[in-house]
Amino acid sequence: MNEKNVTLRVENVSKRFGDFSAVEDLSFEVRAGRVFGFLGPNGAGKTTTIRMIVGITVPDEGSIELFGSKMSSELQNRIGYLPEERGLYKKMKIADQLRYFAALKNVSGAEADKRIDFWLDRMNLGEWKKKKTTDLSKGMQQKVQFISTVLHNPDLLILDEPFSGLDPINVEFMMDVISEFKTQDKTIIFSTHLMETAEKLCQDILLINKSQKVVSGSLREIKESYGKNLIALRASGGEKVLEDKSLVAKVLEHSDEKEIHLADGASDQLLLRRLIESGAVVTKFEQIEPSLNDIFIEKVQS
């Protein structure tokens, strides 16, 4: 992999709070221009890791490199971070708060005003510019928070559960903005425990559990490596064959088809042959990929 194309490199990073180890010997890379899914159950160490990446805390061990150099407060200006727990100043006008957040990322003056107007209009919040936070609905507040994350046009966007509490229209809207960033060759780290969203958005994933890495790599490859033993079957007859434990480990009944989990080492071709030999009428027999959800549950429970 070309050095230049790596936005973030995390190497052997550990973080402890007293006796509790929040992150243990974690290493991974995030490539430029990719959407990187950072997944894990609650309490796995996601937020701790992100806080180290954005420079809020420092690792006890290991190193973090951003854009090819060690983390520094200069580099913070190139990151846009939307924390999971987020808020706004209650009694301050929207434009004033955005101006403050922009100034803290070294964007100020007319340039900041221009960008604030642009984003407020884009988010349909133009009329709310002079209103206070308490006048806005929860959804509007979340859009304002999102604006504060992208105002300084960051090269790396870190979104921690960005869609929680958003209605479907706004989710769609946010998705558009995110894909726009992707086309500009910006890197997006996307942290969530909602696998369906991750599956739709992410190209690469990292799954951590109990402060350790479980799976990482491109979503495609990961799915392929898990995808050889799942069959979608629609057939009448052949029930006897499916009871053969040397062939079939598990059968899940869906509405109009069955999901067959093959036994270890069993061949899908043999199963198909046996079904036909038993006189079953097979109308669908398809190798399917596991969903990210399946992989997640399997990995986290094992």
């Binding site: 420079g55 809020i56 913070q76 200006n77 987020r86 808020g87 100043y89 803290l104």
Partner: peptide
């Protein structure tokens, strides 16, 4: 602290 703005601030300045 209460509004969690601190998290955003800390990711922007020391």
């Amino acid at each position: 602290k209460e509004t969690r703005i601190a998290e955003i601030l800390f990711s922007s300045a020391r």
